[in-house]
Design a protein around this nucleic acid. Structure first.
Length: 806
RNA sequence: GGUCCUGUGGUCUAGUGGUUAUGACGUCCGCUUGACGUGCGGGAGAUCCCCGGUUCGAAUCCGGGCAGGACCACCA
C-alpha cells in the first residue's frame, strides 16, 4: 500500500515555489522553435501596504493565462516589471525620509528615489508575486525608471520630434496648482461640489447695466469678453457694445455665440483667460486678448492689482466682499457643479499659458480607431470605451511635466536664436542639465530643458522596455507585436490609448494582437472596495485562511471584463476541490502500484482494446479537453474551470471511479489493466486541466507519481493532453452505451435513496430489452456498481425495476 | 445629457430560440465502512427585473421601461 501523504498546503506551496525557481522552470528560451506568446505585463507600483484582493486577482488572472499558454505549447515571454517612475515614488520618498525635493539636488533626489524603489520592489516581489505562485521569468525584470527604460522613452521622443509628431508650443494647458505641473486630459477627474453662483452687475460704456452670473468672480481681472446667444431677444441689441468690468474697469466687448445657454444664470457669460474649457475655446475662436492672471502656484499676479500674490480662494472672498460694498452683487445662489480635478491630489485644475511639449494626437484619431480595430478586445465592448475616448479628445497629448523625478526631456533651447536642440539617439539616455550643448545655428550655449516626461510617455512603451527593443532588437522583433496586453478598464484612456498611439507613430503597427481587460472586484454587496470605507479585503488574510491554490481558484471564478462581487464561499469550494484532488490522487496511485503505461503518448490508445466504460470515460474526457482548451484560448478561465470541474467531480469521481472499483479490486488481468490505463491517463489529464489555476497541488500530485514516468520536470512545462481516436464510429457507440449506463445508474441510486437504503444495498434489477442489449458489453460493470445480484430482462418494460434483497 | 455593462431559486452562478432552466453555498431527508463525513444519494426552493413585439416556440432576438454600476461630456 502506498503511503497516504498528509495534505500540508503551506509545505507544498513552499516546496514547489522553491523548485520552480531553482530549476528555472519559467525561463524564456529565445532560440525556441515553438510559437512565442509574449505578454505586455502591467508593471505595478510597488507599495509596502497590504495587498488588496482586487489587485491580487487582477495580476493572478493573466498569470493563469501565462500558464495556460505554456501548457498549450507556446514559448511564453512573461517579464515582471515595476513602475517606479513618477509622482507616487516622489511622494513616498518625501514622506518616508522627510526630504523635500526642493532642498535636495535633482540628481541626488533621483538617486534616493531609485534606491528606495529598489528596496520596496524586492520586498514586493517576494511578498506578492512569488508568494502567489506567479510564473514570471525574473531574469527579464524591468523598471520604468531604469536607464534602459529612459533610453526607450527618450528615443521615442527624438524619433517623434524628427518626424514632426512632437512639438513645443505656448498654449493654455490644464494645470494642477498643487503639483505645479501641466496635466494631460487623461489625468483629470470629476469632482462634484457645491459652489456659489454670483450675479454681478456690469455697467455698459454707454450707460445702463447688465447682470452676469459666474461661479468664478476672482476671474474678473482676466475678463476679456462677454457673450450672449445670437437669438436671445433680451440681449440681441447688446451685441457690439462695450461693458465695463467692475472693480478692474477694463472695457470688454459684448459678442454672440451659439454655445451660450440662455437658461443658465442670466444668459450672459463672461469670458476670462482662463476659467474653464469654454473660455479657451472662445478665446481661440474669437481672437480675444490674453490676460494671464494666474501664477503656476495658483496665486494671482499683477494683473489682479492689489490682489496680486493671493491664492484663488482668498481672492474670490475678497472680490465678493468688495462687490457687495460697491452694490454690484445682485444675489447669490447655491449651485451643484462638477469640476475637473487632478486625479492624484483632487485639487481643481486651472488653465495657464505656458510652453509645453505635445505629441500630435487629434490629427490621428481615425487611424488610432482603425488600429484598435485590428486588435482583439476581451471583452469586445471594451473597445467602445477606447473609441469614445478617442473621439472625444480635444487636446493633443501634453508630455512635459514640471516635476523632478522622472525621465528628463532630452532638449536644449538657444536663448539667442530660439533654436530647439534635441539630443541625438546615440547619446541617450541623457540628462540635459548635465550636458552642455551649443546652438547649432549661432553657437551660443543652449539652455537645458528642466522638465520631465509624463510617466505615460515611458509606460506607453512597455512592449519596447519589456521586450528590450534597443538592447536586443533581434529578440524584440520576435516578440512584437506582443500577443497580449492584460490591463484594467480604468486605464484604457491612458495606458492602452498611449501605447496604441506610440506604436502607430513609431512602428506603424498595432502594439499587440489582443487585449484582455481584467476583472474588477467589488465587496459582497456589490460596492467598490475602499480602504477608507473599511470594506476592503486583504489578499494576505485569505491566503492565510484558505491557502494560495484556493485563492487562485477564487480568481478563476471571475469572468473577463465584468465586475466580481466578493464571495467567500468560492474559496471554500476551492478548498474542497483541492482536498478532492488530493484524495483522488491517493486512490488512483494506490491502485496504480507497479503499473507502467505502454507509452507516454495518450494519442495512441486503441479504444477497442479497452473495456466499454473505460473507453467511455476517455471519449468524454477528450470532449472535455477540447472545450476546456477553447475556453482557455478565449481567456474564459471561469468557463474552462467549470467544465474541468464538472468532468472531474461528476463524471470521473462520482461515476467512473465507482464503476471501476470492482475491476480494480477483483477484476481479471486484462480488465484490471484496462482500468489502470484509463485511470492513469484520465487523472493526468485532469491534473493538467487544473494546473494553471491550482498550480501547487497539481504540481505536488504530478511529482508524486507522473513526473518520473512521463519524463517531465514539472507539470507546468508538460504538454496539453490529446486523445486521437481513429475510429470515430466506435467512439459514438461507446458514448451511447456509457451515457445510458450512467442514466440507469442514477435511477438505481434514486430508487435506493427513496427506499432509504444504503448505496451498497444488494438488489435484483430488471431492465428493458433495449437497455439489456445496449448494456451487454458493460453488464458486469453495471452489476458491480449497482450491487446487483442479478439482472433480469423484462419484456415490454420501458423502465427500470429495482427489487431489494433483505 | 450621451454611451456602455449588468439584472436567472435565500446568496452567488451556467445557459445567445425548443433543456423537466445548470451548478455551487445554505437548508431539509437519508446513506456509509476497501480515496475522501472536507464523502455519497435524494428533496424543497425560480412570475429567468417589468411591459410590449417578432416567432409554431423566447431567459435567450427586437422595442420601450425600471433598478444597479461604469465611462464620457457638461455649463459660465
Amino acid at each position: 500500500m502506498a503511503k497516504k501523504p498528509k495534505l500540508d498546503l503551506r509545505e507544498i506551496e513552499n516546496k514547489w515555489r522553491e523548485f520552480w525557481e531553482k530549476e528555472e522552470i519559467f525561463k524564456f528560451n529565445p532560440s525556441t522553435n515553438k510559437k512565442i506568446f509574449s505578454i505586455d505585463t502591467p508593471p505595478p507600483y510597488a507599495s509596502s501596504g497590504h495587498l488588496h484582493v482586487g489587485h491580487a486577482l487582477h495580476y493572478t488572472q493573466f498569470e493563469i493565462i501565462a500558464r495556460v499558454m505554456r501548457l498549450l505549447g507556446r514559448e511564453v515571454y512573461f517579464p515582471p516589471g515595476f513602475d517606479d517612475n513618477g509622482l507616487p515614488t516622489e511622494k513616498y520618498v518625501e514622506t518616508k525620509l522627510g526630504v523635500s525635493k526642493k532642498d535636495v539636488d535633482r540628481e541626488e533626489f533621483r538617486k534616493i528615489c531609485l534606491e528606495e524603489s529598489r528596496k520596496v520592489e524586492k520586498d514586493y516581489a517576494e511578498r506578492v508575486f512569488k508568494k502567489l505562485g506567479h510564473s514570471y521569468d525574473w531574469s527579464l525584470l524591468y523598471q520604468t525608471i531604469s536607464p534602459e527604460a529612459q533610453r526607450v522613452a527618450q528615443t521615442a521622443f527624438v524619433r517623434l520630434y524628427n518626424q514632426g509628431d512632437c512639438y513645443r508650443k505656448e498654449e493654455p494647458v490644464i494645470w494642477c496648482p498643487y503639483h505645479q505641473t501641466a496635466l494631460a486630459q487623461a489625468e483629470v477627474e470629476d469632482l462634484k461640489r457645491t459652489t456659489t453662483l454670483n450675479y454681478i452687475d456690469f455697467e455698459l460704456a454707454e450707460g445702463g447695466k447688465i447682470t452676469i452670473a459666474t461661479t468664478r468672480p476672482e476671474f474678473l481681472p482676466a475678463c476679456v469678453g462677454i457673450f450672449v446667444h445670437p437669438q436671445d431677444e433680451r440681449y440681441k441689441s447688446l451685441v457690439g457694445k462695450k461693458a465695463i468690468v467692475p472693480i478692474f474697469k477694463q472695457e470688454v466687448e459684448i459678442m454672440a455665440d451659439e454655445k451660450v445657454e440662455q437658461e443658465f444664470g442670466t444668459g450672459i457669460v463672461m469670458v476670462c483667460t482662463f476659467g474653464d474649457n469654454t473660455d479657451i475655446e472662445w478665446w481661440k475662436k474669437h481672437n480675444l486678448e490674453l490676460r494671464n492672471m494666474l501664477n503656476p502656484d495658483g496665486t494671482l499676479n499683477e494683473i489682479a492689482g492689489e490682489l496680486a500674490g493671493k491664492p484663488i480662494e482668498d481672492a474670490r472672498r475678497e472680490i465678493i466682499e468688495k462687490l457687495r460694498e460697491l452694490g454690484k452683487l445682485e444675489k447669490q445662489e447655491k449651485l451643484e457643479q462638477v469640476v475637473g480635478a487632478c486625479w492624484r491630489c483632487g485639487t481643481p485644475v486651472e488653465y495657464i499659458v505656458t510652453k509645453q511639449w505635445f505629441v500630435r494626437t487629434l490629427k490621428y484619431k481615425k487611424e488610432l480607431i482603425e488600429r484598435a480595430r485590428e486588435i482583439k478586445w476581451h471583452p469586445e465592448f471594451m473597445r467602445k470605451r477606447f473609441e469614445d475616448w478617442t473621439n472625444n479628445l480635444n487636446w493633443d497629448w501634453i508630455i512635459s511635466r514640471q516635476r523632478y523625478y522622472g525621465v528628463p526631456i532630452p532638449a536644449w533651447y538657444c536663448e539667442r536664436c530660439n533654436e530647439i536642440i534635441v539630443a541625438n539617439e546615440d547619446e541617450l539616455p541623457v540628462d540635459p542639465t548635465k550636458k552642455e550643448k551649443k546652438c547649432e545655428k549661432c553657437g551660443a550655449t543652449a539652455k537645458p530643458e528642466e522638465d520631465v516626461f509624463d510617466t505615460w510617455m515611458t509606460s506607453s512603451n512597455t512592449p519596447e522596455i519589456a521586450g528590450r527593443w534597443l538592447e536586443k532588437p533581434e529578440i524584440y522583433e520576435k516578440l512584437a507585436p506582443f500577443s497580449l496586453r492584460p490591463q484594467s478598464h480604468d486605464i484604457i484612456r491612458t495606458w492602452a490609448f498611449y501605447t496604441i498611439l506610440k506604436s502607430h507613430l513609431l512602428f506603424n503597427r498595432r502594439p499587440w494582437n489582443e487585449v484582455m481587460i481584467g476583472t474588477y472586484v467589488l465587496d459582497a454587496k456589490g460596492k467598490a472596495m475602499h480602504k477608507s470605507k473599511g470594506n476592503a479585503i486583504w489578499a494576505e488574510d485569505l491566503i492565510e485562511k484558505y491557502g494560495i491554490d484556493a485563492f487562485r481558484y477564487w480568481v478563476s471564478t471571475a469572468s473577463i471584463g465584468s465586475d466580481l462581487p466578493f464571495n467567500e464561499t468560492e474559496l471554500v469550494a476551492g478548498q474542497r476541490l483541492i482536498t478532492k484532488l488530493h484524495n483522488a490522487a491517493n486512490f488512483v496511485f494506490m491502485n496504480l502500484e507497479g503499473f507502467e503505461p505502454d507509452s507516454k503518448s495518450s494519442t495512441e490508445i486503441d479504444l477497442s482494446s479497452l473495456e466499454k466504460m473505460d473507453a467511455w470515460l476517455l471519449v468524454k474526457l477528450s470532449k472535455t479537453l477540447d472545450k476546456v482548451r477553447e475556453h482557455f484560448e478565449n481567456y474564459e478561465i471561469h468557463l474552462a474551470r467549470l467544465e474541468a470541474e464538472e468532468f472531474f467531480w461528476h463524471t470521473f469521481a462520482d461515476n467512473y471511479i465507482e464503476i471501476v472499483k470492482r475491476r480494480i479490486y477483483s477484476g481479471n488481468g486484462k480488465e484490471k489493466r484496462s482500468a489502470q490505463l484509463t485511470l492513469y491517463h484520465a487523472f493526468l489529464a485532469i491534473l493538467k486541466m487544473f494546473s494553471p489555476v491550482t498550480c501547487f497541488i497539481t504540481e505536488d500530485i504530478f511529482q508524486r507519481f507522473y513526473a518520473s514516468k512521463e519524463g517531465v520536470k514539472s507539470i507546468h512545462i508538460s504538454s496539453w493532453p490529446a486523445f486521437n481516436f481513429a475510429n470515430s464510429e466506435l467512439a459514438e457507440d461507446v458514448e451511447r452505451v456509457g451515457d445510458r449506463f450512467v442514466e440507469l445508474l442514477k435511477d438505481v441510486r434514486k430508487a435506493k435513496s427513496n427506499a432509504k437504503r444504503a448505496m451498497n444495498a444488494k438488489v435484483k434489477l430488471g431492465l428493458a430489452n433495449s437497455d439489456m442489449e445496449l448494456l451487454a458489453p458493460a453488464l458486469e460493470d453495471f452489476k458491480g456498481v449497482t450491487c446487483a445480484e442479478e439482472i433480469k430482462q423484462v419484456e415490454n418494460c420501458d423502465s427500470l425495476s429495482v427489487e431489494f434483497l433483505q
